[in-house]
């Protein structure tokens, strides 16, 4: 029992740590597109390890296999990138401010307009790069 309790405590602490880091990133990072990284990544793993802990806990406590927490994990892993993508798209649409030192302003403008290519010269450049 002691070893399993240690494992459960480890996963719970890991999960809590990642959730906290995700929210610290949300509060601390300077612009929206950077803030987007923190919750989408840190929270998926945070909730994931909390659910692993919960699975272990209930499997041992009731001494039968309890894996229905897997459903929430799968659901969050599928929806986290989708909602991040939708939020980024909405932010591009309403012209959210970016940090001044953000690079790649052509790509940013092209993404806002949903235009096909940043520019002809850029296109030729990229294809050379990917072939080499």
């Amino acid at each position: 029992m002691n070893w399993t309790e240690l494992a459960i405590s480890f996963f719970v602490l890991l999960g809590g740590l990642f959730m906290l880091i995700g929210s610290i990133g949300l509060a601390r990072l300077p612009d929206f597109y950077m803030r987007l990284h923190a919750p989408t990544k840190a929270t998926t793993l945070g909730v994931g390890s909390l659910l692993i802990a919960s699975m272990l806990f209930f499997s041992i406590k009731n001494s039968m296999f309890s894996i229905h927490e897997v459903l929430i994990t799968i659901f969050l892993f599928i929806t986290a990138p989708v909602s991040a993508h939708m939020m980024a798209k909405a932010a591009l649409h309403v012209d959210t401010q970016t940090l001044e030192r953000t690079q790649g302003s052509e790509a940013h403008q092209a993404a806002t307009a949903r235009k096909s290519t940043p520019s002809e010269a850029d296109l030729a450049n990229k294809q050379e790069g990917s072939e080499s």
């Binding site: 993404a111 949903r114 235009k115």
Partner: peptide, 9 residues
């Protein structure tokens, strides 16, 4: 380190 924002039309 990457988030996809949009796909061109």
């Amino acid at each position: 380190g990457t988030v996809s924002c949009d796909v061109s039309e």
